[in-house]
């Protein structure tokens, strides 16, 4: 039986750093749920025993270095183009498990076309969509998913629908798309929601393994830095504000 990094047997481990993660320290801000999402994906890759045949597609945003964290082959894509790159990988190497890891700027702004058409084609890929309602890496600008009234560096008085439209509802938009086999919105603000998020992530990868079609999990995430909140306040804000705009749930499940 293999040993964990701490020298214990796997059987004794209630919780260990997943083999789907490298030993590299993630560069995310303290309390940012990007790390939680990485951890859950890595656990799923380990549990499904697909680390050795997975290619992660890192995109542009705070998660630009995702290829350093996931213990898999990886390709870094241009801003928004992750699903097109993943399409190329999957079509040329169908035995490979491919997932993109995209933020709301990457997926819902510059890359909206790529994700919709990949879904439309029913590409057998998995998309991890991190929605924290703000551009993080470029210093807190409005994202398509920014809430009405939410202050960002480019909506200093709060998002005004007259000026900059309404929040973009990716899951609702994709839910009518016949190429989508699994679609869920989750969050990671307490043990219950983290466990639920992991179930959906696992289901999304299983969807790809089964060859059933396109799968996407939207993870309502925190950005303590650009929300100007502590990590715990940010989790509370998800509960009080984000989940009102973005209700959780499984939108499409080919298997159920």
């Amino acid at each position: 039986m293999s040993e964990t990094r701490a020298g214990h047997t796997e059987a004794e481990a209630l919780y260990h750093r997943p083999a789907g993660l490298t030993d590299v320290q993630m560069r995310y801000c303290p309390g940012c749920t990007h790390g939680t999402a990485h951890k859950l994906i890595a656990e799923v890759l380990e549990e499904l025993d697909i680390i050795e045949r997975t290619v992660a597609v890192a995109t542009v945003g705070c998660s630009v270095y995702a290829y350093e964290y996931f213990n898999t082959d990886a390709v870094q894509a241009a801003h928004g183009r992750g699903p097109a790159v993943a399409t190329g990988i999957k079509r040329a190497s169908p035995e490979t498990i491919v997932f993109t890891y995209q933020g709301d700027g990457d997926l819902a702004a510059i890359g909206l076309s790529e994700v919709i058409h990949s879904a439309q084609r029913g590409e057998k890929m998995t998309v991890m969509f991190i929605n924290n309602a703000v551009f993080g890496m470029t210093r807190g600008q409005m994202a398509p998913t920014t809430l009405v009234g939410q202050k960002t560096t480019t909506t200093p008085l709060g998002r005004d629908p007259e000026m900059s439209g309404m929040p973009m509802m990716i899951c609702e938009m994709l839910s009518t798309n016949p190429g989508v086999a699994y679609l869920a919105r989750e969050t990671m603000i307490d043990p219950k929601t983290v466990r639920s998020a992991k179930r959906s992530i696992r289901k999304a990868f299983q969807t790809q393994i089964d060859g059933a079609g396109f799968s996407l999990v939207e993870l309502i995430s925190t950005c303590p830095a650009w929300w100007h909140k502590t990590p715990l306040e940010a989790m509370q804000w998800v509960r009080d504000e984000m989940l009102v705009q973005y209700p959780l749930g499984v939108f499409v499940d080919y298997d159920g």
């Binding site: 964990t4 990094r5 701490a6 214990h8 004794e12 481990a13 209630l14 919780y15 260990h16 750093r17 997943p18 993660l21 320290q25 993630m26 995310y28 309390g31 940012c32 749920t33 990007h34 790390g35 939680t36 990485h38 951890k39 890595a42 307490d190 043990p191 983290v194 466990r195 990590p231």
Partner: peptide, 20 residues
């Protein structure tokens, strides 16, 4: 009590729990 909440919530995967 080994509930695992700390490890589950840790965003940096810093926490491991073993039954001894």
């Amino acid at each position: 009590t080994g509930c695992g909440h700390c490890a589950l919530m840790c965003p940096d995967a810093c926490i491991e729990i073993y039954r001894v």
